[in-house]
Write a protein that binds this DNA or RNA. Structure first.
Lengths: 346, 346
DNA sequence: CTGTTAGCGCATTCAG
DNA sequence: CTGAATGCGCTAACAG
């Protein structure tokens, strides 16, 4: 068990065999080359005994395939991305791949650099939750034959495959729920403008308002990122309006935390003074002062699908353009953060 | 900007230069070899123009240094580890390193496999939140000259350096707070037995009880892992006791979520019916039905220190044994989840 | 059934 | 100031 044999040549030497034979056995190609059962066993046990494990760097260089996938997320400390990352890592490992994790901090510049970095590291594919709406830098990659699949967000009108939640539908459902509870002055606190998930949710929100013939008031819509501070600041702004909204729709889990803080600071309570619905069900959603009504995204499914589509592209040696976009259905979880201010019979 | 030059030879060819020169320029060694300013510029601009980026796999093979660090955590979807991972990734990237993320799922077997995997991938170092208490598999690594630093948990009596929160102290503080609020029947729901953070917290809890001459009742102490379900089940068990505890000390953020669920299911409320203190401050802690009193760990500092110690070991080519263990101070954040049932003048 | 050897892309020693 | 040649550890084509 002493790890003193560090390359295949040395191991072969000790066994009095050629590197080829050792390599074949270790790569499960013994049968294909009709290597004797005895030799095989000898090799395997010697490898174990001497603590030899193949140098995947050398292997990657030779094979032009590293069995490594890059993942770029805007914020790994956001529980949504942390969960997704977990499933991605587990699925990839099952297939023998490892994951290089990168955090773009929601910065398009970093995202671009990270993409370059991963290309230099010769990853076999990339899973990306992109920041901007332009796919130039990504499409550039596809020319270099590195498959990319987008998650959570996508590039409108681009050939980059993506898996997201149906954000439009989720936002529609949330807004409709608010409307059916009698709300008409519904605010919306969103993330970065240049992110499809933000845009689609805003679109769903507006569609619901329109559907019920409620005027869209632009002062009720705002936000710059998915962070807690943004939720806080936007809420304070909303509360200063002459005519306050009766409900807030937060487009992300961190945003809603900011809303809670602002309301608490202002001595307002949910749902008595104001109602709230948010995107991203969380483990704690049910235990908040006012159990929160949320939109749940199928995180595991997004992750699993992304991995399977990417790996398919990787092994096929090219991107399967047929699977351009998949939008998975969200789920509305009704709790007690919305006050029914005007009962409506369904 | 067409990425059609994929290796240094090709680039050198187009420039009418040798690969040596190109390599030198690209590695910032132009000056050392007194390569002309003109040549340098030509190389750099051509590299940019043709979208050439060095193949870090080949480079790694040659240099026996991949500028890659492995991180093994028991659960990346646990917000504690997600935050730590974020800081680690950011710090590493600043120094030119990338991160391979692995989730051991709190399974010692997986942890061992993962360690092997990372060795095969020739990472320059490993940051590990270990599951077991035995360091055999890790020490094995140090023989192979791959530096390892432990975070959050450590191996008692081993030479593996570690950075953790002072778990003993944190638990002591939490328990003391409960005792000073008049509690005597204090339950403790912990994580896996074979994890130092769990053990140290239990030890701190018991030390506080002892200090105040309160008998330790073993039926009040239990748990198997840091998950939500464990917190749920243990709480239900505690509630069935003839003499219920008046307070619960949860040793992790997910555990306390399980406690909340069990209490809710049982129609009990905090702090009226039972008090609660938990390890791991979270962004939502203040907004729970009953704002939660918590122990906050210095997550960023743990991450930053781990990176700096590891990188020091990496560049020194060996582990600096002088820095064996660092325990950073936790902080008690008092909110409203503890009922004062017997005022005590301090 | 097993072995010899070329070459993956790079940094570097030695030689100008 | 620049270049030719070597070898990092591995796999696979080719050769028995």
């Amino acid at each position: 068990m002493e790890g003193n044999v560090s390359n295949i040549k040395e191991l072969a030497g000790r066994l009095g065999l050629s590197v080829t034979t050792v390599s074949r056995v270790l790569n499960g190609k013994a049968a294909a080359h009709r290597i004797s059962e005895a030799t095989s066993r000898r090799v395997v046990s010697a490898a174990a005994e001497f603590g030899y494990s193949v140098n995947r760097i050398a292997r990657g260089l030779k094979l032009e395939r590293t069995e490594t996938i890059g993942l770029i997320v805007p914020d790994i400390s956001n529980p949504f991305f942390a969960s997704v990352a977990k499933t991605i890592e587990m699925e990839l490992r099952k297939q023998g791949y490892s994951l290089i994790l990168c955090d773009s901090q929601d910065d398009p510049g970093s995202e671009k650099e990270l993409l370059e970095l991963l290309a230099g590291r010769k990853v076999d594919g990339i899973i990306l939750a992109p920041v901007g709406l332009s796919c130039d830098h990504v499409c550039h990659f596809r020319n270099r034959k590195i498959p990319v699949v987008a998650i959570d967000r996508y590039f409108p009108g681009s050939p980059v495959p993506y898996i997201t939640c149906d954000n439009y539908l989720g936002a529609y459902m949330a807004t409709e729920h608010l409307i059916k509870s009698g709300h008409r002055r519904i605010a919306c606190i969103h993330g970065p403008e240049g992110v499809s998930s933000s845009q689609d949710r805003i679109a769903g929100y507006m569609a619901a308002l329109r559907k019920f013939r409620i005027r869209i008031r632009h002062q009720l819509v705002g936000g710059h990122d998915f962070g807690e501070e943004n939720g806080y600041l936007e809420t304070l702004r909303l509360l200063k309006l002459k005519k306050r909204p009766t409900a807030i729709f937060a487009l992300g889990n961190l945003i809603s935390l900011g809303v809670l803080r602002a309301l608490q600071d202002s001595g307002l309570s949910i749902p008595k003074d104001i109602s709230l619905v948010t995107f991203d069900e969380q483990p704690y959603s049910a235990y908040l002062r006012s159990p929160m009504t949320t939109i749940e995204q199928p995180r595991e499914e997004i992750a699993r699908k992304a991995v399977s589509i990417l790996l398919e592209a990787v092994t096929a040696g090219d991107i399967i353009d047929s699977t351009i976009g998949i939008q998975l259905s969200p789920r509305l979880i009704v709790r007690d953060s919305v006050r029914n201010i005007k009962p409506v019979k369904s």
